[in-house]
Design a protein around this nucleic acid. Structure first.
Length: 580
DNA sequence: GCCGTTTTCGGCCCGACTGTTTTCAGTCG
């Protein structure tokens, strides 16, 4: 049993208890689920190593939950959970995806209308049955239908961050086989699209049979869809398909290009090939017309193919038909920011508010990760659920940072902790901390955490007003969207980008895989408008710091260079760029 | 159900919003 699977059971137990009106226990289960989800070591391994005692050492886990986890690991099942499920047999994980539906309403819908899943829900809502229920009304029904539409439109795809680690793990397992000469990811995963439908792995091998046999027998495979010598496919437990294709060495580049896409990009490449008297397909670039079996001109590598078509190599993240081909033909492609270019992280939360690790622990982890600076940006008091900082506490925190910086200096460490905040933007665009405090901070980030449904005009003005504050450096997660879970709030992004340009405000690319906010198209607009950005992890614990790479991927999809991203710069240069 | 250099019992991040009500339950962050 994987950590994800254990976490899912614990989350659902919490929700079932919530249904019954049990207090406090749901939060206990939810907390443990969160912890296990972001744990780096597998709980099953921890159990194997140290038994029940070792599981109890996980924070938030006591005797009772430890025993439940033990039962899950040993038997793959949990009687307590099965019993709860029997009482209210509903498809919790999909129903809770509908905005506004929580455990209590799901229970009511089940008891009164026998609604068990999304299909039942849609039928009842369309028949007008929900509006007539006590505690519901026409507005609830309308919202449910809207929520259903959103769930459906994101259906069948997976957030990149939720599947990339699994795909990389499978790739690495196959890579270890001696029969595998070369292996690479293709498809939208290679382009680092924010959501992906399935994953393709391309392999060069002289002996494909043992490779394929091994692949379809992986423990990750919930179902084998195909098992051949050139193509095999499995379905993972989360429902995503992974394909492996074995291709000849001389066609590897052509196949990689073909399977990486995007489709539109490839169609354009083929048209260019035809104009030059070639044919391009997944086996290579050939002289002459299709089917004529002409001489192979290129195919071994993608570089070779692009070169033969008289254009420079195009990074996978750019292959979306947004003008990259024209630039490649003129040899004018931007040099994208690289995955190792970040020198700092300008959004980090600590245990001062809703983070799991102390300020010092986050500092040490950042040093270990090779960063040169971080900004501590805990929440402010308006966000009561996160125990947001008020004036008094943030002044205390500044003192702690001064102390730590002093110690770093004595140690001779070349690392800086910057004083910062993630300050709430209030309804009228004013801020949750007074200007005299903000003026003392190195990095002031602001964000919207409330009133997501203001009118477009009000929301835009609210954000613009905050950006005009001379103390405000960065607008964090500018659109507020959560991938596949929540639409962005209604605000005019073109106007916000314009205001950023006028005021010198930095816009954030939040790397958290469920946010990726800004998304690629807005990043591209910022690049074009000369608006600078920062790529942050928004980490609430140490493992989470690694998610900044998803932000880099998104930045590359938006054509950002090192020059566009201020935390790819040395700390002095970065600070001197912020508002004075 | 968990936790304790304030506690082994009595607390548990809590305020705002929505849609339903006519004073509040449920959801969200």
């Amino acid at each position: 049993m994987t950590n994800q699977e254990i976490a899912k059971v614990l989350y659902e137990i919490g929700e079932y208890l919530e249904m019954q009106g049990v207090v406090f226990k749901p939060r206990a289960y939810e907390k443990v689920a969160e912890t296990i989800e972001s744990l780096q070591e597998e709980v099953a391994d921890i159990y194997r190593r140290g038994g029940l005692k070792a599981i109890e050492d996980i924070s938030g886990v006591g005797v009772s939950i430890a025993e439940k986890i033990e039962e899950l690991i040993k038997t793959g099942k949990l009687k307590y959970y099965e019993d709860l499920k029997k009482k209210t047999p509903v498809d919790l994980s999909s129903l809770t995806q509908v905005q506004g539906l929580g455990p209590r309403k799901i229970k009511a819908l089940y008891q009164k209308l026998k609604i068990r899943n999304l299909a039942d829900l849609e039928k009842a809502a369309k028949a007008g049955k929900i509006a007539r229920l006590e505690g519901f009304g026409p507005k609830s029904e309308e919202n449910i239908l809207k929520g259903l539409k959103f769930v459906k439109s994101s259906g069948g795809r997976f957030a990149l961050g939720s599947v990339l680690p699994d795909i990389l793990a499978i790739r690495d397992k196959l890579k270890k086989l001696e029969e595998v000469k070369r292996i690479e990811m293709a498809g939208s995963v290679r382009r680092r699209k924010e959501t992906v439908g399935d994953a393709d792995l391309l392999v060069i091998s002289d002996k494909p049979k043992p490779v394929m046999d091994y692949f379809v027998s992986l423990p990750e495979a919930a179902r084998v869809l195909a098992h051949g010598e050139t193509k095999s496919a499995i379905t993972l437990k989360n429902g995503m398909n992974v394909d492996v294709r074995v291709v000849p060495e001389e066609s590897y580049g052509a196949a990689l290009s073909y399977f990486t896409g995007s489709k539109d990009h490839n169609v354009m490449l083929r048209q260019i090939a035809i104009k030059k008297g070639y044919t391009l397909n997944e086996y290579g670039l050939f002289r002459g017309k299709a089917g004529a079996k002409g001489r192979l001109v290129a195919g071994r590598s993608e570089e070779e193919i692009y070169k033969a078509l008289d254009m420079s190599y195009i990074e996978p993240e750019m292959r979306e038909m947004r003008g990259e081909i024209e630039l490649a033909q003129k040899n004018k492609l931007p040099k994208l920011i690289s995955y190792g270019d970040l020198k700092g992280d300008l959004q980090i939360q600590t245990s001062w508010t809703d983070g799991d690790n102390s300020l010092e622990e986050m500092m040490n982890a950042a040093i270990k990760n090779g960063l040169k600076y971080i900004a501590i940006t805990d929440h402010t008091k308006r966000l009561a659920m996160a125990r947001g900082l008020d004036e008094k506490r943030i002044i205390q925190q500044m003192k702690e940072i001064d102390e730590l910086n002093k110690r770093l200096k004595m140690r001779g460490a070349r690392f800086t902790i910057l004083k910062g905040t993630e300050c709430d933007i209030l309804q009228d665009g004013s801020l949750d901390l007074p200007d005299r405090i903000l003026a003392k901070l190195d990095v002031v980030g602001v964000s919207v955490h409330s009133l997501f449904n203001l009118s477009r005009r009000e929301q835009t003005e609210r954000i613009k007003k905050a950006m005009r504050n001379p103390n405000v450096d960065i607008l964090f997660h500018p659109t507020g969207r959560l991938i596949q879970r929540r639409e962005p709030y209604d605000a005019d992004m073109d106007e916000i980008i314009k205001t950023a340009s006028e005021t010198g405000t930095i816009l954030e690319i939040n790397g958290s895989p469920d946010r990726l906010d800004l998304k690629d198209e807005y990043i591209k607009k910022c690049v074009e408008a000369g608006v600078k950005m920062t790529i942050d992890s928004d980490a609430h614990n140490i493992p989470h710091m690694g998610v900044a790479v998803y932000g880099v991927a998104q930045a590359r999809r938006g054509w950002a260079t090192k020059n566009d991203i201020i935390n790819a710069w040395p700390v002095e240069k970065m600070l001197s760029f912020l508002k004075k």
